[in-house]
């Protein structure tokens, strides 16, 4: 139980870490690259996917599990 919780909290750290890195990359791309639309779109999609998957648990929709 406690181990499960610790693992989940660790996952939270990892996800926010990646999100922070991606945001920094976004900021850098905007400065360094001229027509950055495509790169920014991909980065935003990646960030959104991380949040939807790990923070919003979208897979609960097809993997049936109650509140664990």
């Amino acid at each position: 139980m406690e181990a499960k919780k610790a693992a989940k909290l660790r996952l939270g750290w990892i996800v926010i870490g990646i999100l922070a890195v991606l945001t920094a990359v976004e900021f850098w791309v905007a400065i360094a690259i001229n027509s950055a639309l495509l790169y920014l779109a991909v980065l935003a999609l990646a960030k959104a996917a991380l949040i939807v998957q790990y923070f919003m648990h979208v897979n609960q929709l097809w993997h049936k599990e109650g509140h664990e």
Binding site: A30, A36, A44, I51, V52, M56, H67
Partner: peptide
Amino acid sequence: YWGVEASIKYWHFVDVVWVFFYPALYLL
């Protein structure tokens, strides 16, 4: 804790929106 789960999911949803709005408004 459905009430907690739903509100927090909504919160993440609002965050996801900003993930797209931020580059569209500030970074392009």
